[in-house]
Write a protein that binds this DNA or RNA. Structure first.
Lengths: 212, 212, 212, 212
DNA sequence: AATGAATGAGCCTTCATTCAT
DNA sequence: GATGAATGAAGGCTCATTCAT
């Protein structure tokens, strides 16, 4: 593969990430992408085979870049406590999904795929979401205690991640309800604190009941 | 308007609710709807003017029916405590959004609209979500105490509703991750309990800190 | 189906017959057909579903019209001799396939399909060619004698129909070799005589050998 | 031209012969040919200028090879009788056109060109078919007698070659009608016999009438 | 000399919409 | 009032060809 080829491919990938994130798979047209990337409409089929293949590559590309920058253990040191690991989880989740303009695509793409699944959702689940959730479950279990009821652990994990995803999914609604208070990259720290505050009180409360 | 006309209109509305909920606005075609409703392809434009107008009517129609059946105070008696009112909120939210096959459309449609807003989102926010959220905020404030910090009240409200919406937004993913454990109408009670358990521990913890 | 619909459908069918005969399936575009038929490009898909379906309908339509006008027993009276029936076969074959400007399509379409088969060839064979050939075989058997060797009967049938098809397949070449002697509708009688002369001498010779 | 260049050119020619014969001019894509020949897509235009030029070269190449291997006088000795020369004509025709897998292309290509002429048909006629037919006419005249009516000679020649071409043109149909009896290289001898039997009886009968 | 990359024209098909009854 | 027929715009994709190295 020549240098130009790789460049064009990458430009298509970057552009497509934005356009797919903005309009969704169905509404996005190849001509939109190629127009913005300043390449011929045939370029997509040449480099990726089809619109669908391009889309899958975009999903992979966005995820990879997001996790590279903000891994699940973002900012964590060796021997961190479960609470610290939970905070890193929440913090990196928010950063990954909308903490950075350049990574904006990832959260939106995943969200769209969850709401209006294409054949790519299986890939997303298998290559990302499953291990993400299992990572969280392990932390929650550590906090609740290893002998905590499994169903409780699962439910608390859902409650925890649900608080995080809310800021992603309801962004459009929140912006309309309180336009003066747009959630953005600069709010990530504060939101992290709030989610941690809420969650730790809940988990400690539930953990306490067990040990008593 | 003749009786047949009204019937056709209604049948279109019902069918369109299902089809839009299943496929989303962009992917749904007028022929899908008319085919399933067994009416002429021109019927949509005749009765509703355009695909978009039909869609807006569908949103209105689905919301109205959902709230009629499951109001925010569902199952609540006079003089209920804040905790009871919170439970009614969570319970009715889950029922309204996916507690009933006939109402399945509402939650899915709202969710889609949040992720990929059309001009109808303003309507949805103004006519439903805003008051829904304010209702929740009032309950949370009552639990945390009237002198609780407003930002804390807001954050806790988001954490609370985020747990609820999670079951809606992540349905497709959860089904793929644990196919044997599909969340449905029969799980609403249990999920309500779990969310309440988590949330009340959090709120009580936060409330306790204040009074201390 | 309204009258206009039937008219449009028929016009498309007639036009498509000509265009497919002129250019072949692959080279023909829907725009060629619709342009000549003065209808929108979407009309083909509306009335026939696809280019391929239209093509199959064209093949059926052309065959039906050709056989209606020139059946295998064209000009034949009751109690005709095998020789007379053979002459009717050859004569009607030539007339059907290029004896008439209006029927020009049928022969050309069949010929094209034989040389460059599409999925429609099976249909052509099953619905037309098979019975055509069996009809000929029966006549040849009657001339050669009922106890004639089956392989001989088959071979002679092939030799007979091969003479007929030659005038169809080699038309383009003959026109180039002897432009002054174009084979057309006015030559059908003479060609029929020539084929009959050749064939009857052959069959009688082969038949004579048997009886001796 | 370097050696590799000549090799690539030849490989393209060989491959293209097969592909054009299999799919026809219109349906064949340059990528099919280059893919099978394991060369770059630009190679066709580089070595031959265009798809059409390649096609013409293929026709020339296939004809040349076919006639080299099976000339019109294939297997004939000096002083052969007209009947022997006729047999050599028929025999070599069949061998040339589908007697050999390696030569399969020639018959099919010529046939396709006859049914859907390109500008290459003139070349084919001028450089091959015309002399082929004149060769046959001379033989037929010799058998019928030098004073035979010219029109009769021509007609008998057409009837003779028509029997031969039939096995080429109707191959796809015969295979569908009697799949167990595929005509191939191993049947050439038998078919030659059958055509000769039929034709000689016809010609002798017609010749006899003259002399009587 | 030879190739991978890129192009623009064109194809079939689909769609929401409008027309004419 | 209601419908089958028809439309034009657009979409994804394919192709022979050309460009730039």
């Amino acid at each position: 593969m020549s240098i130009e080829s790789a460049e064009t491919r990458l430009r298509l990938l970057e552009t497509a990430t934005q356009v797919f994130a903005e309009h969704g798979y169905a509404t996005t047209t190849i001509r939109m992408i190629c127009g913005r990337a300043k390449v011929n409409v045939a370029a997509v089929n040449y480099h990726f085979g089809s619109k669908e293949h391009l889309y899958r590559e975009v999903l992979r590309y966005a995820r990879q870049r997001a996790y590279e920058k903000y891994p699940l253990t973002y900012g964590l040191e060796e021997g961190a406590t479960p609470e610290q690991r939970l905070r890193a989880f929440v913090h990196s989740f928010l950063l990954r999904n909308f903490g950075d303009v350049r990574n904006l695509g990832f959260g939106t793409l995943t969200m769209r795929e969850m709401v209006e699944p294409t054949s790519a959702l299986d890939m997303i689940v298998d290559e990302g979401i499953r291990s993400l959730f299992e990572h969280l479950v392990a932390i929650v279990r550590a906090i609740l205690g290893e002998d905590a009821d499994e169903e409780l652990v699962q439910a608390c994990s859902r409650s925890t991640i649900g608080q995080c995803t809310f800021y992603l999914f309801s962004r459009t609604v929140m912006n309309r309800m309180a336009p003066e208070q747009q959630f953005g990259a600069e709010d990530v720290e504060r939101i992290t604190d709030q989610i941690m505050l809420f969650t730790l009180h809940a988990l400690r409360g539930l953990s306490g009941k067990k040990t008593d």
